[in-house]
Design a protein around this nucleic acid. Sequence first.
DNA 1: AAACTCTATGCAATCGATTGCAATTTGCGT
DNA 2: ACGCAAATTGCAATCGATTGCATAGAGTTT
Lengths: 351, 351
Amino acid sequence: MSKTVNKQGSTSASRRRMQMTDIARLAGVSVSTVSRALSGSELISAHTRERIKTLAQQFNYTVNSVATNLRSGVKRTIAVVVPFEPGSRQSFADPFLHGMIGSLADALTERGYEMLLSRTDADRLDAVAALIDSGRSAGVILIGQWRHHDQLNAMAARGLPLVVWGAHLPHQDYCTVGGDNVRGGQLVAEHLLAQGRRHMVFLGDCGLPEVAQRYRGFVAGLRAGGINLPAQQRMAVPFLAESGRQAMFTLIDRIPELDAVFACSDLLAMAAVGALRERKKQVPTDVAVVGYDDVELSAHFNPPLSTVRQPIHEAGALLVGELLMLLEGKTPPPFVVLETRLIVRESSYVA
Amino acid sequence: MSKTVNKQGSTSASRRRMQMTDIARLAGVSVSTVSRALSGSELISAHTRERIKTLAQQFNYTVNSVATNLRSGVKRTIAVVVPFEPGSRQSFADPFLHGMIGSLADALTERGYEMLLSRTDADRLDAVAALIDSGRSAGVILIGQWRHHDQLNAMAARGLPLVVWGAHLPHQDYCTVGGDNVRGGQLVAEHLLAQGRRHMVFLGDCGLPEVAQRYRGFVAGLRAGGINLPAQQRMAVPFLAESGRQAMFTLIDRIPELDAVFACSDLLAMAAVGALRERKKQVPTDVAVVGYDDVELSAHFNPPLSTVRQPIHEAGALLVGELLMLLEGKTPPPFVVLETRLIVRESSYVA
DNA sequence: AAACTCTATGCAATCGATTGCAATTTGCGT
DNA sequence: ACGCAAATTGCAATCGATTGCATAGAGTTT
C-alpha cells in the first residue's frame, strides 16, 4: 500500500488524540510502564523501553504536557509581555521590540522553554500577574517598565517571578536588565558637539524611565559642552513612525536653525529623516540625525543611521538566565546595566 | 503600616500558590461551590457567588488554567510557528514576519486565545505536529510553507488543525491564506515597463512557493511587454539584508545597463537601495526599486519605497478565523487569495 | 403537620499523566 | 527442586480543577 491509513480509521473530523492508555494497550503493558519507558527510566528493561518508544513514534504519540505539568508541577512556559500604549496598539511596531522578542525566543528555546507571547495594555499590568497565578506560565519577562514602577514593585513583593527589560531606578524591588541609557544620551551629545552641531532637538517621551535617562544624559552632555536644551526643543512622542514625522515637522518650523536630531529610537530617527527630506533638509549636511537601539535595518538605511547600540542578544540571554535563577529560588543580581556604544554612520557624520 | 505583608507570611522563596481548596476553606464552602461561583454559575446564590469572587480577588487567586484544560479538554492556546532557514536563524529578522505576528497576536487576543510563539527549523517541521500532539496548543498557524508542501499535506491528512500563510499550490490538502503573488509580480512588471525600464533584475529565492509565484507573474508581465528576463538577471537570496546587499553588488557589476530592481521583500529592497547608493547609482533616477509586503517602514524609507501591499491585518484575522473553524469541526475554505495592490512611491517613480 | 417543590450546596468521579510501594517474575546458588 | 535477591512491572494515590447526581433546607400547598 502506498497511502498510509489514518490509525484511528476515523472520518477526518473527530479524531481522538492518542493517549498513554492506548499505547499501553497496544504494547500489552500498563500505563506506568509506558510512562517510565518514554521518560527513559532505568527501571524498565532496555528491550521493553525500545519497543514502547518505537510504538509511540509509529502512532505519533507525544506525552500530553498539560497533564505532565499538572502532576509534576514543573512548567516550561515563560510569558513574554509586550505592553502597548493604551489607545493605540501600535507600539508593537517598533523594530526594536522584534529584535528583543527574537533574541528571547532564541534564549528560551536554547534552555528548553516555550514562549507565550502576550500583548497587554500598559495600564493593566495586573494581567501580567494573572499569567503566573493561573499557572499558564512559570514566570514573566516584561519588555519596558513604562509608567508602572510601583505596580512592578508590588508584584515583586508578592514574590512573582518577574524580570524586566528597562531602566534601573531607585527603590526598585524587581530585577532589571537594561542598557546604560544615561551614558547613551551623553555619548550622542558629545558626538554631535564634536560635529559642530549647536541646535539640537530631542524626540522621545520622558514619561518613560528609559527615555528620561537618555534625555538626562543628553542634556548633561550638552551642558558640559556649554549648550542648553530649552524645553521647546524636546517633543514627547510615542514610538510610532507617524508621530515622529509629525513631531519633526513641528520642530523644523519652530527652530529654523536646527542642525541635529536625537531620536530615542531608530524608528523615530528614520521617520525624522523622512520628514527632513520632505522639507528639503539634507541629512547629514544640514541636519545630523542619531537614533537609538541599532536595529538591523539602521545599517541599511539611507543614509546609514548613527545610533546607540543596545546589545539585544546579550540582553535576551541575561533576562532568561535571571528569570530561571528566580524560578530555582536563587537570587539574581537586582539589576544589570549593559555596556552601551555609539555607532557612528553617515546620518550624523560629515567627513 | 506602609509595607504590605505577603499573605502566606512566607520567606520570599517558597510561596505556595493559592488554590481552590484554600478559597473554599476561607469561604467555608466546598470546592465545587467555589468552582461554580467563579465561573458565574446560576446554581450558586448571588450572595455566595459575590462573596467568593471578592475573596478570590483579595487573595490574588486565579483558577489554574492548566488543571481546567486537563479536565475540560478545551485549550485556548494557539501555536504560531515561524520557521527559520536551517543554518542561519536570521529569517526572524524580516519585518514582514513581525507585522504578521503582531496581527495574529491581535486576532488571537480578540478571540480570547493565547499565542505560543515557536521558532522551528524549516527542515524539521515534524516539531510542529508535536506542538499539537502534546496538547500544548489546540492548533497551529504556520507562517510560510517553505520547501515542505508534502510534509504539510501529510500533517493535514493526519487531521492536525493547521492553517498556513503562503501560496496556494496544486494538490494542497491544508488550508492557506495568502496574497495573490502572481498578480503582484505582474503589477510590478507593468509598472516598471510603464516607467520605461528595460533592464530588470529579480531578487528572491524561487525555491519558496510564494517567491516562485511572484517571479512567474513578473516574468509573464515582462514578456507581455516584449521583454525577457534572462536567468542571470535573477538571484536566489534568503530574506536577509546583508545577502540582499551582496547580491545587489554582484548584479550591478554583471549588468551595467541595469535600471530596475524587483525585490521579493521590502527588507531586500531596502538593502538593494543601500547597495546602489554605495555604487553611486541614484534611486529612482538611475535605477528604480520595488519591494514586496509594504511593511510599515517602507513609507518612511528614503526614498519612500514602492511595494506590493500584503494585507497583513486582514490575513491575521482570516488565519485565526479559519483555524478556529477547523477546531470546531467545520470546514473552512481550502484556500483564500487576498487582493494585492501595488503602492507606488518615490523609489520607482520619476515624475 | 405531612408531602412536595425548588434552591443551594456537597460528594465523588474524572481529565492524562507520574511515582512510591507492592507484587510478580526471573535468575542463581546449593 | 527450593529459597532468596534482583530485576521488572502493576496498583493506586495524586496534581487542581469541573460536573452529574444526590441531598439538605427553605418555602409552599393541602
